[in-house]
Amino acid sequence: MFRYNLIIKFIALFVIGGVLPISYAQASIVTSVKPLGFITAAIADGVTTTEILLPDGASPHSYALKPSDLVKLKSADLVIWIGDDMETFLPSLLRNIDDEKQLSLANNPKIMPLLREGHDDDHDEDGDEHDHHHDHSHGHELDMHIWLSPKIAAVSAQIIHDKLVQIYPDKSALLDKNLAMFIEQLKETQQIIAKKLNSVQNSGYFVFHDGYGYFENEFNLNNLGSLTINPAIQPGIKKVYEIQTELNEKKAVCVFREPQFSPAIIDKIIKGTDVKVGELDPLGMGIDLSKDAYSHFLLNITQQFLNCLA
């Protein structure tokens, strides 16, 4: 691991210093996670290209950068990300990139992250240990999954638009048009989702990853709590009994997992209960970049909730 980190630092030094040649075309805008790419692609449609840093299945908490990623960051006109508490691998690299070429949405005063109760959350999207700067064991914490809020997405779109107008002033008219179209489509999508989820607002469920608060709050979903187990380790008999008791006492309809949870662990937990198992994808795996991608992303999550709760 030490040797790997040394190699990455060496390559970063060459890339940031401009020594490593860039022999192929790079995207003008790079976003850290896919949902930010969905929003950006809509605003930048016809103006410039957008590329995603993290591949499908990678965790923003623990992603290991490749040399090509470093070149991509250095050559981008703009890097868009959430903030230190989400993409924990980025801050040290971005310190070597001009502030005018990066946009941290969590640090923008127009965006107010959701405050949630702290808890013993020992896994993330990939089941790895969290490396956050805030404490998960007690008190409160800020929920940085801001892309799951349509309201914050609208604010983010405006922020991204304003930044792109600075970078591409000759494209301001097209950027204005793209923003207006995005906001209009987002409003229509929110109305569709509200109607779809209205019938399941009283259906209680548990999640393994407590990262859906924005979406749940906006559409009045009934999250009963999160089950904090490590997806890589089989839970013991006592833990299984505690979870099954909670599922039954709170009359849960569904338990939502994410792709890293093995079917064997899920089957063990719900055995002897009437609880169904659903799967939620908070990062838009399998959805291609397009000007309509963010709406597709929200509708996809909506259908995932319905598949289990309806």
Rank of each mutant, 00 (worst) to 15 (best):
M1N: 15
Y4D: 13
Y4T: 10
Y4W: 14
I11M: 04
A12R: 12
A12V: 00
A12H: 13
L13I: 09
L13T: 13
G17W: 08
Q26T: 14
T31R: 07
S32L: 06
S32H: 13
V33K: 06
L36W: 07
G37R: 08
F38N: 06
G46M: 09
E51L: 04
D56G: 02
D56E: 11
P60D: 07
H61K: 08
S62L: 03
Y63I: 05
L65C: 06
K66H: 09
P67L: 03
P67H: 05
V71H: 02
K72R: 15
L73P: 00
L73I: 15
K74T: 01
S75F: 01
S75H: 12
A76K: 07
A76W: 09
D77A: 10
L78T: 12
V79N: 14
V79S: 11
G83N: 11
G83R: 10
F89H: 09
F89P: 05
P91H: 06
P91T: 05
S92C: 03
L94N: 03
R95T: 13
D98Y: 05
D99T: 11
L105D: 05
P109K: 04
I111F: 08
E117K: 15
H119Q: 13
H119N: 10
D120Y: 12
D121I: 00
D122G: 06
D122M: 14
H123V: 05
E125I: 15
D126C: 13
G127H: 02
D128S: 14
E129H: 14
H133M: 04
H133W: 03
H136T: 08
H138S: 14
H138G: 02
H140T: 12
D143H: 02
M144H: 13
H145G: 06
H145D: 01
I146P: 01
W147R: 09
L148G: 06
L148W: 06
S149T: 11
S149V: 11
S149N: 10
K151D: 14
A157S: 11
Q158G: 10
I159N: 09
I160R: 08
I160N: 02
H161C: 07
D162S: 15
Q166S: 12
I167G: 09
D176C: 04
L179I: 12
F182Y: 08
K187T: 13
K195W: 01
K196W: 03
N198L: 15
S199M: 10
V200T: 12
H209P: 05
G211E: 00
G213L: 02
N217M: 03
F219R: 11
L221F: 10
N222A: 14
G225K: 06
L227I: 15
T228M: 11
N230S: 11
A232R: 09
I233P: 00
K239F: 00
E242Y: 04
L247H: 05
E249N: 15
K250I: 02
K251W: 01
A252I: 01
A252W: 01
A252D: 01
V253W: 11
V255G: 00
E258D: 03
E258I: 02
E258A: 00
E258K: 00
Q260Y: 05
F261G: 00
S262R: 00
P263R: 10
I266H: 00
K268H: 04
K271E: 14
K271A: 13
G272D: 04
T273F: 07
K276R: 09
V277A: 08
L280N: 09
P282A: 13
Y294G: 03
H296T: 15
F297N: 01
N300Y: 12
F305D: 08
L306S: 03
